[in-house]
Amino acid sequence: MKTVYVTGASAGLGRAIAAIFSREKFRVGLIARDEDSLAEAATSIGGGTAWATADVSIFEELDTAARKLEAQIGPPDIWVNAAMATIFSRFEDISAGEFARATNVTFLGSVYGLQIALRYMKSRGQGHLIQIGSALAYRAIPLQAPYCAAKAAIRGAVDSLRCELIHDKLPINITMVQMPAMNTPQFDWARRHIAQQPQPVPPIYAPQACAKAVLWAARHPARREVWVGKPSFEAIIANKLFPALMDYYMAHRAFEQQFEKPAQEHDSEGNLFIPSTRFHRIEGHFSKRQISRTFWFGTSWWQEIAFFVLVLLAFALLLVIL
């Protein structure tokens, strides 16, 4: 029986990931800030589930949590970084402290998780690091600058680490799973400086459906990235081909798509600095609009070689015809 640790596991996608791994008979370790919500999540998930509290942006707390889980269920075979924080606001209205906090949780929290997980995996000579990313790691959108920046930074850190693991011939895999918009509670508890109620950019996917892609990634550790859902695939490819046009498209479409209705108040403190006592569940309040099934595409080096060979063959055929 393998062991998986999941950060950000008290709600949303992290909780959905923990639940699906538990159903597949993994030993599961939950990590998040709020003790009560973690205890409730562990009871709900059941099985061989343990939990430990930590603010992932504080290395010492996350390290202590990992050591507690190790004592209870053993070291991690798989480590999933799913913790995040976001702010819905114009760039100029985000304070320095808010920007730093969102970046520390989403980016540095992932970096710390990778560093701690590597300690366990290098000593055992095996392991799989799974980093939850987003299509926004490739194609940023307005009004979420800290989140988009953090996800892009994570992709850079993961790519750098992957090169080092390959160079050192270490049998440790690392996969980044790029997610579409999901129906998670983050839109209820995110900090906001705008007089609108945030929503995921449609189409909206069920976190449980996206968690299945993470389980698939765990079972296919050689995959470099996993792109989940049609919007992720479209955003990543379109931005590679037409980045300037995508700037204009997002400028004209992404504002309205991120909000469902006027908010009662202009500002919302959210859970940026203090854990929320509400909304500790998998789904947000968009369940009637969510899509319960999705597809995913896993990238790998051999696919790139096959694509390169096909391009050469096409070019050779073109020369013959001409």
Results as ranks from 00 to 15, higher is better:
273 F>Q: 11
258 Q>N: 11
298 G>Q: 11
289 R>A: 12
257 Q>A: 09
262 P>T: 15
299 T>Y: 07
259 F>C: 07
284 G>S: 12
300 S>H: 10
302 W>Q: 04
284 G>F: 12
247 D>G: 12
247 D>F: 09
289 R>G: 14
268 S>A: 10
261 K>M: 01
301 W>H: 03
262 P>V: 15
272 L>S: 00
298 G>P: 13
262 P>H: 12
292 S>D: 11
295 F>T: 10
298 G>C: 10
259 F>M: 09
255 F>L: 03
300 S>Q: 12
271 N>Y: 09
246 M>H: 13
302 W>G: 01
263 A>N: 01
251 A>F: 04
282 I>Y: 03
286 F>T: 03
280 H>M: 13
284 G>K: 13
274 I>D: 06
287 S>G: 08
269 E>Q: 05
285 H>M: 08
284 G>D: 07
267 D>P: 02
296 W>L: 14
249 Y>Q: 14
255 F>C: 03
274 I>V: 15
259 F>V: 01
247 D>P: 14
273 F>V: 10
271 N>R: 06
247 D>I: 11
283 E>P: 07
304 E>Y: 00
302 W>H: 05
279 F>G: 05
279 F>C: 08
267 D>F: 08
286 F>C: 05
266 H>E: 06
290 Q>C: 02
264 Q>P: 00
245 L>A: 15
294 T>A: 14
251 A>P: 00
278 R>T: 08
280 H>L: 12
248 Y>L: 15
277 T>K: 01
248 Y>C: 07
278 R>S: 10
282 I>N: 00
281 R>E: 01
285 H>F: 09
